[in-house]
Amino acid sequence: MLHTVNKSPFDKNSLKTCLSHSLKDSDILLIEDGVYGAIKDSAMSGDIEKALTDRKIYVLESDIKARGIDSSRLVQGVAIVDYGGFVELAASNDRVQSWL
């Protein structure tokens, strides 16, 4: 299952709720302000590192670029995808949940 999150975890609880509901082997894609959740050494990075042990986490390239987030600032193990990759994730998973 693909989960998308578009909120900063420092503002809304969407990412926390996503992490607590997503099962093992899920794909989690952070888009829009959701990409702030993947920054390393943040109050959220521990939760992201923990999730990465049994789930895959992606950020949308255009959204990190727009926000001035260099890939070196991301928690290690977080993958970067473009919109084509977003479409592939949506197609390869059986269902999609948008945590708004």
Binding site: S62, D82, Y83, G84, F86, V87, E88, A90
Partner: peptide
Amino acid sequence: QFTKAALDA
């Protein structure tokens, strides 16, 4: 952007 990428694919 998603719609465009889906059409492109």
